[in-house]
Design a binder for these strands. Structure first.
Lengths: 343, 343
DNA sequence: GTGAAAGCGCTAACAC
DNA sequence: GTGTTAGCGCTTTCAC
């Protein structure tokens, strides 16, 4: 049978389409008996409002757009990052009958801004959740904002009162991890920096320095290596740090992939983890629990962040960015098997 | 400024809206000079067609829905699986200016069918890509098909001529992997079965038996353990298989997570991989390349499968399932460091 | 409380 | 080649 429309329902219930609309949208001012009658007709005809028609008439849709950078490598190691973002937004969507549109894009593309503008102007989602590191590019943010589409930035490098955004306290927790290592007796704690394009990763380095200071340890450039977030770069840095006589007894990497690289090198060099070397990462990707020894790391509340962002969009619509102050959701230390007392 | 509509463009270009529509949709029968004029007006007004209006008028949208089961565990190990599916569909979407809507759902839910029917009737995507294991549930398939929305099933347990679907040759490649292990001199090759709810995983066991037979090796129930696709179950099975005197020299697991469990146990038992034990998995998740030794596995062409499915939907629309025969995209053996000659 | 009428911004069918 | 006329199925506005 051809799909039932609002007219069919109205006819069957003996009311006007406006009344059907009221019932379907749970608007007030409908007599209880009328409501019942309409609901019966809806059930009988198996009526489902057509979203396209609603969107067109109301100028808004029930779609949340999730936009993130996709390294697009052959199964990027960031899949855990992306999945958790998606899960968060999905939780918010499910609760409110919204759907999720995902739109990865390539930061290095010259016309990301144009692409995104096309996306929002054509699809007209109810709002956009913009993940880091894209959320730190002013050009992109402006491109979306200029369309009037409500936008929430995740993990922004800069925040402003009265401008809603969601982030976590990278710096504090990196300091805490560093203090944790120091409290285990480590004095030579190395740090592997990540891709400088990621602001959050920069905050982690600052946290590392804070932690050293708070533990009364001296900072030394010799204990710092520059990676690029990849496993390979982790291996290279680990090779450099671990093959000299005065090697560190603990290495803290700005992300888990690089930390995994360290552990691979340790196995090859015959260095026992955590007996001779403690390794700590950052992100809590699945890998950290899949290997032996399981990796100590910092769990970012990615899903929670994404969920808060999406809920804010759903509940506040166009007012989302105004009025609300930035929100910070704390991360969590996950002490596992790869860290232990200094040798 | 208020968004430009097709009427604004028509007025500015001095043509009718139908002509603008023709130009925008690249339809034939427009004089070159007219086309130019319209294009200029479009650029000048920064006109973007409103998708909602298009959808409503044309009864179709530029959205592909990707539907899969989501174990929803705290960062499921299946994130690689999901990401690769998404990447495939996204490739098809990008090329054709479609957007991707993702809709994970819980197989165990009693009303998945209803949920999915609501989804397609409200959003009216141009088509649905349905991933395994959902694609093997007749109730779900019927629920979607009954709405008339074009549907392509991925990795279906059963295929039918003249009914398009996309799958891979699990059985053949499991046999090939088994033969590979046999060719390395292994005679005691164990197999860890996965979650019986996943048909593909059942095919892998059959392939294992094929491979044994083709290599002139005898099948023995003692060399088979039943896992459930999780790392933990891999550990339990490995413990069982590796702690008896007559232990196998090679273990082939129906997925990579269970294989990772085997390797964790091997490290703890002091069994060298691949010196004393060869380990092979299935799926080629990121982990296989993140650990040492890197894991030998079978790479399913998930992204390619998803891409073919989405392209079929985009290109053939409502005719997708008719006419086209099922498609099989071959998997690929990835021989890495975790397998070697029998001791 | 309820309904009539007027769009929303396009595409489709057909006339010219 | 190009334009005219009807919708698509809702929400909105405002009258009752």
């Amino acid at each position: 049978m051809p799909k039932a429309t609002i007219d069919d329902v109205a006819k069957l219930a003996g009311v006007s389409i406006k009344t059907v609309s009221r019932v379907v949208n749970r608007e007030p001012n409908v007599r209880e008996s009328t409501r019942k009658r309409v609901e019966k007709a809806v059930a009988q005809l198996n009526y489902r409002p057509n979203q396209s028609a609603r969107n067109l008439a109301s100028h808004r849709s029930k779609l949340i757009g999730l936009v993130y950078d996709d390294p697009a490598a052959y199964e990027s190691p960031s899949s855990g990052y992306i999945i958790r973002l998606q899960q968060g937004v999905l939780r918010a969507c499910k609760e409110n009958n919204y759907e999720l549109l995902i739109h990865p894009c390539d930061m290095r593309d010259k016309d990301v801004s144009k692409q995104l503008r096309d996306l929002v102007e054509q699809v007209r989602p109810a709002g956009i959740v913009l993940a880091a590191p894209l959320s730190n590019l002013p050009g992109i943010v402006r491109a979306i904002e200029s369309t009037g589409t409500p936008l929430v930035r995740l993990s922004p490098g800069t925040t402003r009162r009265g401008k809603y955004s969601v982030s976590t306290n990278d710096r504090d927790f990196s300091a805490e991890m560093t203090r944790h290592l120091a409290s285990l007796g480590h004095t030579k704690i190395a740090f592997i920096k990540g891709n400088p394009a990621h602001k959050a990763v920069g905050h982690r380095f600052l946290g590392y320095r804070d932690g050293l200071e708070q533990s009364g340890l001296e900072f030394s450039e010799r204990l710092v290596a520059q990676g690029d977030n990849s496993i390979r770069s982790g291996e290279e840095c680990a090779n450099k740090l671990l093959t000299r006589k005065d090697r560190p007894t603990a290495i803290f990497a700005a992300n888990d992939d690089m930390a995994a690289g360290i552990m691979r090198v340790a196995v090859r060099l015959g260095i026992d983890v955590p007996g001779e070397l403690s390794v700590a990462g950052c992100d809590d990707i699945a890998l950290t629990r899949q290997i032996y020894p399981a990796m100590t790391t910092i769990r970012q509340p990615l899903a929670a962040m994404a969920e808060h962002a999406a809920l804010a969009l759903i509940r506040n619509g166009a007012n989302t960015s105004r009025d609300l102050d930035p929100e910070v959701i704390p991360a969590e230390l996950k002490i596992r098997e790869s860290t232990g007392p200094a040798p």
